[in-house]
Structures are given as C-alpha cells and as structure tokens.
Design a protein around this nucleic acid. Structure first.
Length: 837
RNA sequence: GGGCGGUUAGCUCAGCUGGUCAGAGCGCGCGCCUUACAAGCGCGAGGUCCCCGGUUCGAGCCCGGGACCGCCCACCA
C-alpha cells in the first residue's frame, strides 16, 4: 500500500479518467440480452439532443439514473441503461440554418437533399459531445448499443407506427386551426406554446349604429365573417339574423347568437374571425361560417387583406386603425395573455392550415387506466393527478412539421385525389411525397421500445421491455411521458415502464430558472473539473427533492469532502491492517459500528425504494462522518496500531461494505479504493452489494456506545469552557461503575481516571454517571463553576416544566401512558442530574 | 380564471402517522499542525418554525382565514 502512504489527498482529476476507462473496458455497461424484463433492470435515458451539451438537468437526472442502475446491478440484476440521442428536429435544423446563414446560404438554395446531408454532417461533427460528458460523469450507460432517433431501424419503427395508425384512422389530414410559428415557418403543438402576459391596446370599433366590437388585433377584422352576441342578450336579440357591413372591406356579416359570447365584456358584441382565432374557429364551425385567412404563413397580410396585403401583421394593425378613423370609438390599455413559441420565441399566429393530426381519445383512455390502476406508478403521487387530468382533456395532436430534418411523412400523392400511405414508396410514376416531417415527440414516444429493436422480436426487447424506471423532469410529463405510455400500450402492448420518477428542477442560486439566455446557467462539466464527478453527483443528489430547489455549491463541496474522507479513512485502515487479520468483533465499539453500518444499509435500501436520493446521499455522509470517522476510527485507532486482529478485521470489513454501499452515489472514489483493498476482487461496479445481516443489529452496543459518545462530548465541553488546552490530560474520577467504556472515554476525552475517592472536584453529569474533574494544572475551575451554575439553572427550568406537565390532570388523564411514562422518566433523570451537580 | 407546491438558524434545506422536533451542511466565533485528513479536528453562538384565529392535555406538524413567492393548466374578444 505504498501508494496510500505517498498520496495524502484524493485527487479526482487524476483518478476519474483512469477509472472511467476501466469501466468502459470491462463491458459491464453492456449486459447480455438474456432472461426477461422481470428479472432484469432497465432504464431508457431521456435522449438528449444529438448536438446538445450536458446541462444541469442531464447531470441531475444522470446521477439519479446511474445510482439506480449501479444499485440494481450490484444486486445481481442485468442492468441496462439504454443510451442514445434525439434528432431534435427544430433545434438541430435551426443550428444548421444559422451556420449556413453565416456562410450566406439559405437552405432553399441548397435544396432539401443537400440540406439534410448538411445536417447529418453537423450531427456527426457535434454529436459525440454529450456522450463523452456522460462518460465523465461515470454514467454507466450502454454506450455500445447507442441509438439515434433517425437511424435506420428506429426510422422503420416510426414509419410503421404512422402507417398503422393511419390505417386505423387515428391519423388524418385536416384543415384546422394550428399554432403557427412564423419565425420557424412551421406548425407547433399546443405543448410548445407558452403564454406571456402583455399589455396591448384594446380597440373598440364601430361596425354599425348598433354594433361596436372590441379587439386587441384590429388587423384581423379584415377576416371577420360574423358578429356574435349572446342568445340571452336582450339588447341585441333583434339583431340576430340581420347583417352588418364590415368597415373597410364591405363584406356583409351575419349577426349570430352563440353561448361563447360574454354579455358583460365590452358591448357584448364579438367580432368573429374563424381564420385567426381558435375560439372564433370553433364558433365558425358551429355556424358554418366562411373562413377568410388574412395573415399568411410568412406572417404577412395575404391578398384577402386587400389594400393591406404584404404588410406585416403589426404594420397592418396601424394601417387598419388609421383607415378606420372615427370608427375607432375608444382605446384602452388591456393586459392579457399572448401565445409565444417556446422554440423560436416568436409570437404564435393562430391560422388555418392543412396538417396531419393524431386523434388522442382512443389512445389516452388506456394510458389513464394504467396509472389509475397503479400499473404505472408516478412519484411523487401528486404528479399522477396532473397526468390524468391532462389526458382527460386531451385534444388532437398536430404531428406534422414544416421542416426538412426529421422523419418525412410516409404519404404520397398523385394528382388531385390519389393518396398512398405505406412503408415503401408506391408503385408507378407521378407520385409526390408529402414534404412534411413528424413532430420530434412522435418518434420520442417510441423510445423505450424502438431503441431495443422493436418492431422486430429481438432478444433485447424480450430482456429489457418493459423498462423499470423512467426518470425525468416535470416539464415533459405530457410532452413525452404520457405519449410513451400511449404508444407502449398500443404497440408492444405493455406499459413502457413501471415507475416514473419526476425529479426536481434545479434553479439558479437566486431562484431564477437556469438558462443560457438569462446567463443563469451553471455548467456541470465545470463542476466536475473543479470538484470531481463524485462530488458533483453527490451534490446534485443531495440537493434534489420533490420540489424545485436552488443550486447550492455547498452540497457539491460536501460531496468532495465525503470522497476525500473515504480516501483518508482508507489510508488509515489500509496502511495499518494485516490483510490476513481475521477475528470476530471483540468489543462494544466493534459491535456498535457493525450495527450502525447495518442501519445505514437498511436506510439506503429504503431510500432507493422510495426514490429519495437526497437522503440516500446525505445518509451516507452522516454515516461516514458522524459514525465511522468521527467516532469508530478514533476509538479503534490505538488497537489498529497495536495490530489487534479483531479491530483490524472489523475496520476492514466496515470499510469494504461502506465502499460498496456508497458506490452508486460516488462511484469513482469507491472504485479507486476498492482496488486497494487486500485480495483480488475485480471491479466494485461489478461486485455484489454486501448482504444485509440483521443479526448485526445490536441494541445493547448502540446504547453503550451512544452513552460513551455523549460522555466524551460533555467532557470535551467542560474542557473548552474551562479554557483547558487540548494538550492537558485531565484528572478525573468516574463516580460510577462503567468498566466497559471507561478506557474509551479516557482516550477520546483525554482524561486519566483517578481512584482518589476523597478528592473534591467539579462535577460533570454524563450518561454513564457523574464525573468529578479533579484539580489539574491549567484548568480554570472558576469558569467551570460559572458554567456549572448555568447548567444547574437549565436543569431546574426543565424540571419545573416537566413537573408542570405532570401535575396537569388532563395531561395525565388523556395522554397515552407511554408518553406520560417517558415524561416521568425524564423528570427522574433530570432530578438525578441536578442532584449530582 | 382554475389547480398544485412553498414560506423553519445569516444562506441552502431536513423535520414520518401531532408528545426530547427545534435539526443538518455551509457561513460565523473560540481553541487545536492530536503520527488518516488544517479543503482537517474539537467546542460554541444563532430560530415569535410567515401572520391571525381554532381544535387538542399538548401543534412547524391538524382545521379556517389572510399575506407573500414559485410552478402547471385554461378559448374570454
């Protein structure tokens, strides 16, 4: 162990690359596809964008999933953590478009085929980054079976699902109101739209003597095809069935009655623009109204807008208001929610477009059922309510995107009315393929099974589907998780995962969202550089929770301390034990640490079970610091130096098991130290977690050592308060019978037991009985006496409180006996302590 | 407009079914280079558990009301 004699500090930057390579070389990340999903353990990683870089969310989720994978692998299960990336249609296409723009080229100039080639080049160039970052984290993903949502096999799965759903009538094409992103030039789904509160001007516009409408978007009036009033509105009943003339345009608008209209808003007259407002669209469908599109997909006014054609919507707004002149009877500031595209940040333009949709009702029902029946368990449970409510209100999903990068829709057209949908192009000439691609989430929805080779009946599918856990942040519960459940049930015919763990979102230290654009992001790779991967993993797990949390560097530092502490403890133990040492525990402290270790093992198992990673990490820290290092190692040190076999064997055993227990959280340092343990033992990552041994739980030892520890604490406290230097050995007399731990207490508190029964001294009350501190040089007994007086006062107060409680008749009468009894015991104890003082 | 979560030590957070529950880490103060670790060790000071009512022998913990913060959902021009 010369190594440990010279290495005085654990250096993650030196050790981690070395260890990561050993794992990769070992093949443990790539389990054989044998057995069935019940006996194996699998997780499909939420696929990062192919050209993405590791952010805090990946790092946290990676730490969580890897802890689970390592834990279950160490329990003997074939553990597969499916790795791969997502083609991320919009995001990736945008990157390449931006790159081309810097070269002064547009994608149209290149043409579709060459543009897609460019994107492939781009993904190949930037695609390996996140993989290497996951490796730095120590994530034991199955890198050897990496998948990509656009690779051939995956694409076949996507097209098969499309064709099947098309054949079943669940996928259809329709002219329908969609969220149009004018910046990207594509439709986006409801989930990709976010509302922002804005203050605009609300214009009141006179259409006729009787009709005044209100709108924040005067330019849309050009597309009005009706005016609506509430059916019960007495003011306007006589108008229903008549028409008014639309100013500027001259179109005759029927006045219709519809429940949607609110009588108390404005005048109670609603302009109806079915072409540019989702509500008006619905009204239009109910009343068979004409639809006029005045804003085009380029965000400019169409020919339908007459004189205003070609203007941007905003320019048209001003122009329309100006043209209306006196017809604008009032303006007022108005605060309302405005839809924006999450992808481009552009204001969403609702317009009618020919798009592909997926009917969701039939798919949603089973996905609701499996959660309600508990076949899919969502943690924390509050999230399952959100999930169910969302699915119950689900609407058709717009799955087509006007992009070039993605799975092109497998539908061909010929002439006006011939249409073909299939896996292979149709026979014959003159067919044109639908230019649109599928929403990226369409392919992501197949992730848990398409990655395993479905629709083929592969050994991987049989061995690892359904997966066990899906871990993700809250924001894609609907976007992704719900859709995977629907597709899993519909296609392979089984739930895609048994547990959904919804982890917290880590916010910036000031509570804002971590984001590049706000400048609030923290790069996990920099954390790994500075503190090591173990520290980063530990810190992220420690700060995780069921709710959002603020990033705290302190937790990462705590992780670094834990890694170093284990390293130092190993140095102490491994440089002082004889590898052959073998003897059963001989003393209370040996039995105590084995008992505490057993508790720590049980505790960790419980935490893993309930997905409480914070307490898993912090519990390890508490055990290593608060029990193993602060106390046991300090107690056992002299015996280690003396070469006592029982001490050596116990220390070694506890170290070995502690390394194993901590491995899922801090894999690197534990693997490093494992290799230094005596004997040939292979990789820790491939080893079995030490079996639980309830026979080690030892209440007697727990009590004995807890008393000794408390005694040491009180003696140290006395030392400090009496200004006694640590170097001074206190003379003290133990006025009680405590042979078992008296030497231990003497050692740790630096006292020397005296048998001078006649001497007077300051009394320190301890759990093992009163200890008299005898006159010693360098001890300020006056200070100690002051301290003792304070202590006496505190005891008196507590006694008074306990007495008060016990003399309260209703307390004694109504409180459970055990509570009353323990209160009595407490009072007895306090009285005894006071007496001793 | 609905729904959910939060408000505990200077900071970040724990506190299970109401009865040693007032805690941890960091920070702060004091003291120590004690042959594993000074990025360490020991000791210590910090809290009207957001506010107001209520239930109870007893309430951070339960109930009602309020304040502030955050998130999600939603078709009100």
């Amino acid at each position: 162990m010369t190594d440990l004699n010279t290495r005085t500090r654990y250096d993650p930057s030196e050790a981690e690359p070395r260890i990561a390579q050993r794992w990769l070389d070992s093949g443990i990340n790539h389990p054989n596809p044998e057995g069935d999903a019940g006996e194996n353990f699998s997780i499909a990683v939420p696929p990062p964008n192919v050209t993405g870089a590791l952010h805090m969310g990946h790092a946290l989720n990676g730490s969580i999933q890897d802890a689970l994978i390592r834990w279950h692998r160490m329990h003997g299960r074939r553990a597969k953590w499916v790795f791969g990336t997502d083609h991320a249609g919009i995001a990736t296409q945008k990157q390449v478009e931006a790159k081309l723009a810097r070269q002064g080229v547009t994608k149209e100039q290149l043409g579709r085929e060459r543009f897609v080639e460019e994107v492939w080049d781009w993904t190949r160039e930037h695609g390996g980054i996140i993989q290497s970052q996951f490796k730095r984290m120590g994530a034991s993903l199955d890198y050897d079976a990496e998948r990509f949502t656009l690779d051939d096999g995956y694409a076949r799965a996507v097209l098969k699902v499309f064709v099947d759903l098309y054949d079943q009538g669940l996928i259809y094409r329709d002219h329908y109101m969609v969220n149009w992103d004018p910046g990207l030039g594509t439709a986006v789904s409801d989930l990709e739209v976010e509302e922002r509160e804005e203050t605009d001007t609300l214009y009141s516009i006179r259409y006729s003597d009787d009709v005044v409408v209100a709108t924040v978007r005067p330019e849309t009036m050009l597309g009005d095809t009706a005016v609506a009033v509430h059916p019960d509105d007495e003011r306007y009943k006589h108008l229903v069935g008549t028409t008014v003339t639309l100013p500027l345009v001259g179109r005759e608008l029927p006045v219709i009655a519809d429940d949607y209209v609110r009588m108390d808003f404005g005048t109670g007259n609603l302009k109806v623009t079915p072409g540019h407002d989702p509500n008006d669209f619905e009204i239009g469908r109910r009343h068979g109204l004409e639809t006029v599109g005045v804003i085009g997909e380029d965000g400019r006014m169409t020919a339908e807008a007459g004189d205003f054609a070609g203007m941007t919507a905003l320019e048209a707004r001003e122009a329309v208001v100006a043209a209306l002149g006196d017809a604008v009877v009032a303006t007022e500031p108005y605060t309302h929610n405005v839809p924006y595209s999450q992808r481009s940040g552009e204001r969403i333009e609702p317009l009618i477009s020919l798009q592909w949709f997926m009917a969701m009702d039939e798919l949603a029902r089973p996905a609701i059922d499996v959660v309600e029946r508990g076949e899919v368990k969502i943690h924390p449970p509050s999230q399952s309510r959100r999930y169910v409510e969302w699915l119950e209100g689900i609407r058709p999903w717009c799955i087509s995107r006007q992009l070039w990068w993605g799975h092109q829709i497998p539908v061909w057209y010929r002439g006006e009315d011939e249409r073909y949908c299939g896996l292979e192009p149709p026979e014959g000439d003159g067919w044109t393929r639908d230019p649109d691609v599928l929403d990226t989430w369409f392919s992501s929805a197949l992730w848990p099974f398409a990655t395993l080779g479905w629709p083929e009946d592969t050994p991987e599918v049989r061995a690892f589907y359904p997966t066990d856990v899906l871990s993700t942040a809250r924001d894609i519960l609907f976007l992704w998780v719900a859709r995977m459940v629907m597709m899993g049930l519909r296609f392979p015919g089984a739930i895609p995962f048994e547990h959904v763990y919804v982890h917290s979102v880590i916010q910036a230290p000031d509570g804002r969202r971590m984001s590049k654009s706000l400048g609030t992001g923290i790069d996990p790779v920099e954390l790994i550089d500075e503190f090591g991967a173990d520290a980063t993993r530990f810190g992220l797990l420690a700060m995780s929770s069921t709710q959002d949390v603020r990033f705290s560097k302190e937790k990462i530092e705590q992780g670094a301390k834990l890694a170093n502490k284990l390293f130092q403890a190993s140095r102490l133990i491994l440089t002082n034990v004889d590898p052959a040492a073998d003897a059963p525990p001989s003393r209370a402290e040996d039995r105590w640490i084995l008992s505490r270790l057993e508790r720590a093992k049980a505790d960790a198992a419980e935490r893993i079970d309930v997905f409480d990673f914070s307490k898993l990490a912090l519990g390890l820290y508490d055990f290593v610091f608060g029990e193993l290092c602060d106390w046991y190692l300090e107690m056992v040190k002299p015996r280690l130096y003396d070469g006592e076999p029982a001490a050596q064997a116990t220390a070694l055993r506890v170290l070995e098991e502690t390394l194993a227990l901590a491995h899922p959280v801090i894999p690197f340092v534990t693997e490093e130290l494992w290799a230094m343990l005596p004997g040939e033992r292979g990789l820790l990552a491939a080893s079995r977690m030490p079996a639980r041994d309830p026979s080690r739980l030892d209440t007697a030892a727990d009590t004995t050592i807890a008393a000794a520890i408390e005694t040491v604490r009180r003696l140290r406290s006395f030392r400090d308060l009496s200004d006694t230097k640590p170097s001074v050995i206190l003379r003290a007399r133990l006025d009680a019978d405590e042979e078992q731990t008296a030497p231990l207490i003497a050692q740790l508190a630096r006292v020397e037991w005296s048998t001078d029964w006649d001497a007077e001294g300051a009394v320190v009350v301890t759990p093992v009985g009163p200890v008299a501190i005898l006159p010693t040089d360098g001890v300020d007994f006056a200070a100690a006496a002051r301290r003792q007086a304070e202590e006496r006062k505190r005891l008196q107060q507590e006694i008074a409180r306990a007495e008060g409680k016990l003399s309260n008749e209703s307390f004694v009468a109504k409180a459970p006996e055990a509570v009353v009894a323990s209160e009595r015991e407490k009072l007895e104890r306090l009285r005894a302590e006071l007496e001793a003082l």
